[in-house]
């Protein structure tokens, strides 16, 4: 069993009076890609925000063995990357500039971007195949291109742990496949990736899976395990069936 990169313990969150998470405990292993899946309203995005330390909660989150509040803001931002759902950005900013914002945790207060910053931005833009429109403004890009720029923004921080909420939104199948390739390269290099995904078939490509329903974690296991597939079918009221097609697990609607 590999060490945990990030873990949540007894997390409860209420927004207003509505409880969203009920004592959630979950661990995410180092250097692996874990997808969090579950029906709408399961609390997946909320859990991801808690892991990122951007939503107050009761319970505790540990990052690389240290409680999250004990990390300095800057070190935490260098170690823990985040890509939000439907992330916004100023429409008139250039793609390159937006990706450079991902380097903020590495930059000192008034210093201009260093050569290392520029190199990281170029790597991120090339990895997401968005280098060619680096000088275009976000407002002129298509939904998919825009999503790739925002992914590059998250990659540019070169964090050890990367949390992504619905990163495949607006991506067409070829670019979803590209995203898959990027995540596999990241995991191979030792980056821990945690993603919330609605596309169950894409989620089944991950190493590990956390299944949530009604603000609780109902199952944690390997994506290739039959028990995981059964749990997945159960959480969706057997309206999906997990099948193997051409050596790949896919979820078929029932």
């Amino acid at each position: 069993m590999q060490a945990l990169a990030i873990s949540a313990s007894a997390i409860s969150v209420s927004i207003g009076k509505a409880p969203i998470l009920h004592g959630v405990t979950a661990g995410f292993r180092k250097g692996r890609w874990t997808s969090i899946v579950g029906p709408n309203g399961a609390g997946k995005s909320t859990l991801l925000k808690v892991l990122a330390g951007i939503l107050p909660c009761t319970g505790s989150v540990n990052l690389l063995g240290e409680p999250l509040p004990e990390w300095s803001r800057r070190e935490r931002a260098q170690t823990l990357g985040w890509l939000g759902q439907n992330e916004i950005a100023a429409e008139d900013l250039g793609a390159y500039d937006i990706v450079m914002l991902g380097r903020i945790p590495h930059q000192s207060w008034l210093a201009p971007p260093s050569a290392a910053d520029h190199a990281a931005v170029e790597r991120a833009l090339r990895a997401t195949q968005s280098w060619k429109y680096r000088s275009r403004s976000l407002g002129t890009l298509s939904g998919g291109e825009r999503q790739r720029v925002l992914l590059a923004r998250a990659l540019a921080s070169e964090a050890q742990v990367l949390l992504m909420d619905e990163p495949l939104a607006n991506l067409d199948p070829p670019h979803q496949a590209d995203w898959l390739a990027i995540v596999r390269v990241l995991a191979a290099k030792g980056t821990t990736v945690v993603s919330v995904l609605h596309e169950i078939s894409m989620a089944l490509n991950a190493d590990d899976m956390v299944i949530m329903a009604g603000g609780r974690v109902t199952y944690e296991g390997l994506c290739v395990d039959a028990a995981t597939h059964r749990a997945l079918e159960a959480v969706f009221d057997h309206r999906v069936a997990v099948r193997s097609v051409a050596d790949q697990w896919i979820a078929l609607p029932q």
């Binding site: 925000k49 931002a77 939000g84 992330e87 950005a89 100023a90 937006i98 991902g102 903020i104």
Partner: peptide, 13 residues
């Protein structure tokens, strides 16, 4: 400009 959640995740106070 990236929104509050992302700004917080970038370590901005």
């Amino acid at each position: 400009s990236l929104g509050e959640a992302t700004a917080a995740s970038l370590g901005l106070p």
